[in-house]
Amino acid sequence: MHNNIFIGVLILLIGGACHSRSTEEHSISELHQAIDSRLNKEEGDFAVAFRSLGADPVTLLINEKETFHAASTMKTPVMIELYKQVALGTISLDDSVKIVNEFKSIVDGSPYRMDLSVDSQEGLYSKIGQFSTYRELNFEMITMSSNLATNILIDKLDAKKVTETMRSLGAKDINVLRGVEDLKAYEQGLSNTTTAHDLMLIMEAIAEGKAVSKEASLAMFEVLKAQHFNEIIPGQLPEDVTVAHKTGSITGVRHDSGIVELASGKRYVLVLLSKNLKAPEEGIQAMSDISKLLYDFMKDKEG
């Protein structure tokens, strides 16, 4: 008799678990369709990589292995390499660094300068010839997407080492070849590239305290939280949601990649990439809509 009761309870538990799993799979399938439907309304190519963190992670991937011009999303790998070299004792975040505006093309070593008119962070240009620190340059690179700060850091850290560090984190397709505005390299097709999948992996590493160390990951999270450009992932999210992220944009390209933390403390990683956009503002709106869909999905899971 007791055995029959036990078996009956076990069947109910297994049945309930299977039902719960099939219900979630159904809701993820519907979510996938809703995202596809929204993106299909736009002229352009998109990729989505989403993963909830913690127990029973949920993953949703669309074109996650397709290659995109990295634009300024490559600045997150540069930041990770900076904190790695600090951990190795090679440099300190508060070491002095001279602000210069002359860099060498990876094609032939010829010098080139940054164009102030296309950089989003103009403040550093008034300080050329003066000194800053790695900490300050990193903050400008991430939060204001300063190209000048990026090139100074890449010059000091070495692009090859940045890519090697990405490989150590399991990101097999991110390639950081050079700094910004190396036109000779651009004309030869030598550009920094990424996939949504790889950006998801490195953001996940930061979120889980596995990028360099827990302490370094937390410091990087705090810098990413101070992001100045907030149109895409945070665009439609409530104020009590924290988004630590890095954007990127060039002609026809708009990206966002980051870690989203709900008021409850639950977290997920989201990467939204785009290229060949005919109407960039509409592409931004579409990706912001996708971010809201995924946020609503996570909130429903909490309920």
Rank of each mutant, 00 (worst) to 15 (best):
L270N: 11
D289H: 14
E282H: 07
R254I: 10
S249K: 06
V253I: 13
S257Q: 08
L262R: 13
G235Q: 06
K225Q: 01
H255F: 04
K266E: 15
N276D: 10
K225P: 00
V269L: 09
G248H: 12
A279S: 02
G252V: 02
K266L: 04
G283T: 05
M287G: 13
V253G: 03
L294I: 07
A286H: 00
A279W: 00
G235W: 04
K266Q: 12
D256C: 13
T247K: 12
L224G: 08
V243E: 00
Q227C: 11
S264Y: 13
V269H: 07
V269K: 06
I290F: 11
V253Y: 08
L272E: 04
R254K: 10
D240P: 02
T242D: 10
L270V: 12
S288C: 00
E282L: 11
Q227N: 13
P238D: 04
E281C: 01
E222K: 11
Q227S: 14
V269M: 09
D240S: 07
D240I: 04
T251W: 02
I259F: 14
P234E: 03
H228K: 13
M287K: 11
V271L: 15
K246L: 10
A279M: 02
A226T: 00
Q227E: 12
V223M: 14
K275W: 00
G248R: 15
T251I: 07
V253M: 04
N276A: 06
V269N: 06
L262A: 10
Q227F: 15
G258S: 10
I290W: 12
M287Y: 14
R254M: 14
A244Y: 13
E239C: 00
E231Y: 09
P238M: 08
A263R: 11
E222Q: 07
Y295R: 04
K246Y: 10
V271N: 15
